[in-house]
Design a protein around this nucleic acid. Structure first.
Length: 486
RNA sequence: GGCCCCAUCGUCUAACGGUUAGGACAGCGGGUUUUCAAUCCGUUAACCAGAGUUCGACUCUCUGUGGGGCUGCCA
């Protein structure tokens, strides 16, 4: 099947959009079809510089590269495929051609009403507790008059005429049977006065010409579906299948929006979420395999996904579950892969780590402990920068440690460590010797290990004392203890 | 206001019309443990309401209620 994802280049890629793109991708791959990326840049006022590149890069990060349409090659936006162009602003003659066809067939009409008049009209309708709808002033205009005004270059739009007595029915792949009364549907603008199409015309023309089999889009489009269906009918085309997916919601159940959390997919990338985790999470928001499995790779999702199992109700975007999935995915990474994923964050905040031949070993110590990759640099920092160790940290009451006791124990720890030869410096021997110290002097394990770990890291929490001591090396460990002024 | 969609634990969800309504996240309690994690065990918690159909309804129908979306020369 051919599916398509058609974002507007008005900024970032929304996580809801990413989920839609994922579903489109899954259906295309599962059926050995194609996943298209089309750019809907018909709103000239909302265009954002660089947005197309950003969308392509974010999809790429997520692993959802299109098979056809708009993509990037060597940093430049290109278009690939037989059904191009795939950027709507390059398809203007097409939309104009079909608008003309609708005009000639008497299914659409020119409208000269100004935005001011329309505003006024809607205001009055609302005050009269009526549904705001175009009053068809221009529909009643004689053909000669409209032809004359168009010839004179007067600004106008093209509206489609909705038959008032019709009932549009349709079966949506997710929602089943739907039905709409013609009299409640407004005469939609198809072509704007600047010559650009609205979404409605562009969608119908493009998805016909691009041979889209299944349109997967957000539920917010459900109310415009009858307009689209009517357009397909007027143009004599077969409508595609549609699947309107439920919305992603804020915790208060309103449409997911900024201010209640991150909505841009790239925010999640920058925070250090793995694309595997985000995609896994998004797939499960509104879909489930019918079994109790929850962890899925993209490949597994391709095998398992089915549009019929997509939920009808909106789903709250639950960050707690995302974080849990992220943890699952982090722990599945091999040490080498973990370091690779960490690198972009280290480059920015802990460059010294990148020159460290022991980085992989050291990073392994934090792999179980972090949720976001962005936490990595701070967790590894003590390996590369001397920690500031205070008595306040060392004398932890929870471990039954007083400053006096620390002053008594720390020198003994140092002596014990010094007694371990370079070649024996590993976590097993360290544990053996420190336990011996503890037993001979009657200290509790925590009374020995807390000060050691704290002295080496300067942090209230970190990987374990033995691992840290081992990873730091004998010389550095001894020096750090020496540097503490008691 | 009008139209459309939706409705199971706090959240994501499972359920041939017949189950003690299952799982996961979060929460809570506990085990393990030098800290923080990780991990293991246990546990609290839901069928929006009312009618109807049926031997039997979370499941089908209707009404109500609640929530959401749309109502732009935005997408």
């Amino acid at each position: 099947m051919r599916t398509r994802f058609p974002p507007s280049p008005t900024g970032f890629l929304h996580v809801g959009g990413l989920r839609t793109a994922l579903y489109c991708y899954l259906v295309a791959k599962q059926t050995k079809g194609s996943f298209l990326l089309r750019i809907e840049d018909t709103d000239r006022e909302r265009l954002v510089e660089g947005a197309i590149e950003n969308i392509i890069r974010t999809l790429h990060w997520a692993g959802l590269d299109p098979d056809e349409g708009v993509m990037m090659e060597k940093g430049v936006v290109i278009q690939k495929g037989e059904h191009g162009p795939y950027i709507q602003s390059e398809r203007l003659p097409l939309y104009q051609k079909y608008a003309k066809e609708l005009l000639d067939a008497g299914r659409a009409y020119p409208c000269f009403c100004t935005p001011d008049r329309l505003d006024q009209m809607r205001k009055e309708q609302q005050e009269a507790k009526q549904a705001p709808m175009y009053d068809r002033k221009c529909l009643k205009m004689p053909k000669e008059e409209s032809a004359r005004r168009i010839a004179a270059g007067e600004k106008h739009v093209i509206r489609m005429e909705i038959p008032r007595s019709t009932t549009v029915t349709f079966t949506d792949d997710i929602r089943g049977n739907l039905s709409f009364e013609g009299k409640t549907i407004d005469d939609q603008v198809l072509l704007k006065s600047d010559g650009f199409p609205t979404y409605h015309l562009a969608h119908v023309v493009d998805d016909h010409l691009m041979d889209t089999d299944l349109v997967i889009r957000g539920e917010e489009w459900l109310s415009s579906l009858p307009k689209h269906l009517l357009l397909f009918e007027y143009l004599g085309w077969k409508a595609p299948r549609y699947a309107h997916v439920p919305l992603l919601l804020n915790p208060d159940r309103s449409k997911l929006s900024k201010r209640q959390g991150d909505v841009a997919a790239e925010d999640y990338k920058e925070k250090g979420y793995l694309p595997e985790a985000l995609l896994n999470f998004l797939a499960l928001l509104g879909w489930n395999p019918g079994t109790e499995e929850e962890i899925f790779t993209l490949k597994e999702l391709i095998d398992r996904f089915s549009i019929e199992r997509v939920q009808k109700a909106g789903a709250v975007f639950d960050h707690e579950k995302l974080d849990w999935l992220q943890g699952q995915w982090i722990r599945k990474l091999t040490p080498e892969e973990f370091v690779n994923r960490l690198k972009p964050f280290l480059e920015k905040h802990l460059a010294a780590a990148l020159r460290d031949p022991e980085l992989t070993t050291r990073a392994t110590l934090i792999q179980d402990r972090l949720t976001l990759l962005s936490e990595g640099p701070d967790m590894l920092r003590f390996f590369y920068e001397e920690p500031g160790v205070t008595m306040e940290l060392l004398a932890n009451p929870k471990q039954k440690l007083t400053p006096e006791l620390v002053k008594e124990i720390l020198p003994q720890i140092r002596t014990t460590l010094e007694g371990i030869a370079e070649k024996d410096w590993n976590r097993e021997i360290l544990e053996e010797r420190l336990r011996a110290l503890m037993e001979s002097k009657g200290y509790k394990l925590g009374q020995v290990l807390w000060p050691l770990r704290a002295a080496l890291t300067g942090k209230p929490y970190s990987p374990g004392a033995f691992e840290v001591a081992e990873a730091l090396g004998r010389e550095k460990a001894l020096t750090r203890i020496d540097n503490i002024s008691l």
